[in-house]
């Protein structure tokens, strides 16, 4: 069966997010005074062909840890 899985990669707490800070500043310059902070995440949408739902978690976790995220700076969420 085909399944679409979403992996969201974000920076761990305490890791600086220069891109987020820049977006925060730009939004504030545009007059959006309510913006207090922006964090930038990256989202991968992966289409899998799997036999069962049980396979998804383990294989996507493995993909994420091997390539999509660097464990030193990133946390991630897997959803489908």
């Amino acid at each position: 069966m085909e399944k679409e899985v979403t992996v969201t990669i974000g920076l761990k707490k305490g890791i600086s997010d220069p891109e987020g800070k820049n977006v925060t500043k730009a939004l504030s310059l545009l007059g959006f005074s309510s913006v207090k902070d922006v964090t930038v995440n990256k989202r991968y949408v992966i289409t899998l062909d799997v036999e069962s739902e049980e396979q998804i978690e383990q294989s996507v976790r493995e993909m994420t840890e091997k390539l999509l995220a660097n464990p030193v700076i990133h946390h991630y969420d897997i959803a489908w």
Binding site: I15, P18, E19, K21, N22, N70, V72
Partner: peptide, 25 residues
């Protein structure tokens, strides 16, 4: 660094560092 060869203080191939985005973005 992404191969885990530098600084090379983990198990072989273990990633223990990252070259992250410049502070200036």
């Amino acid at each position: 660094v992404e191969l885990g060869l530098l600084p090379g203080d983990g198990e072989p191939g273990e990633v223990t560092a990252c070259l992250a985005e410049n502070d200036s973005a």
